[in-house]
């Protein structure tokens, strides 16, 4: 059986004396976050909404932080949700959302602060059985309508995978222009230390005669609400 040194030796041999250029530094071309004005943000939000719709996502628009809970509870009630699964937020207080849902008579499964290994399979099943999963994204990409979710103990990414309806909130400060800016914003540390998923629209397939069908394995619908934290 081969080991690291065998493989490296084979590769080294194969490369022989061929030139090995320097590692070219290729810059991420995204603008840094703090350089954005309120206008820029509004513009990014509009672009994000447009792109999200083009991948069959449901763009719920922008709302103030104190309105988010009511908006989501209303959406859940409208779409006939009976159980919703929710984790902790990144910048947004999801406790308020959970309370608003319960007021609507919806039962809430809280995944924070983490699971016990013995209960893992059961918890996965319960998340999968929920009608709606609610999570906050760490960052959103305007040019592609993408949400980046970082999985942690209190914010498992299965919330955005297993339930048929997925609701993702994102703080307007966390909108970036393109993929490179998102990767730079998340940073090498975050990515080296967590599972990260970029989500662009509901789960989809084109495997049958190239016809697009939503909700193969992941959510059939994806609703995104942008939260504007300040009065501006």
């Amino acid at each position: 059986m081969a080991d690291l040194s065998d493989i490296v030796a084979r590769v080294k041999d194969a490369l022989g004396s061929s030139a090995r250029g320097d590692l070219a530094e290729i810059d991420a071309n995204g603008a840094p976050l703090h350089a954005l004005s309120a206008n820029d943000r509004a513009e990014l939000a509009t672009q994000f909404g447009h792109e999200l719709k083009s991948v069959a996502g449901d763009y719920l628009g922008i709302c103030r932080a104190d309105e988010a809970a009511a908006r989501i509870a209303a959406l859940a009630a409208e779409t006939g949700v009976r159980t919703a699964a929710i984790g902790e937020g990144v910048a947004i207080d999801t406790g308020a959302i959970a309370t608003a849902l319960e007021t609507e008579g919806i039962s809430v499964l809280r995944t924070a602060p983490g699971v016990d290994a013995d209960n893992r399979t059961q918890t996965l099943r319960r998340v999968a059985d929920a009608d709606m999963g609610i999570a906050e994204a760490d960052c959103a990409i305007a040019s592609t309508g993408t949400l980046a979710v970082v999985s942690t103990v209190s914010r498992p990414s299965s919330l955005t995978l297993l339930p048929p309806s997925s609701v993702i909130l994102v703080n307007v400060d966390r909108l970036v222009r393109d993929i490179a800016a998102a990767v730079a914003t998340l940073g090498a540390n975050e990515i080296a230390n967590h599972r990260v998923t970029l989500i662009t629209g509901p789960s989809r397939t084109a495997d049958i005669e190239k016809r697009i069908v939503l909700g193969v394995h992941g959510p059939k619908s994806l609703h995104v609400l942008i939260v504007w934290p300040r009065d501006e």
Binding site: T144, R195, T197, L198, T200, G201
Partner: peptide, 11 residues
């Protein structure tokens, strides 16, 4: 597509 639906970063 501009980006696939899921880009998974596994560590």
């Amino acid at each position: 597509q501009k980006l696939t639906t899921y880009t998974n970063f596994l560590r």
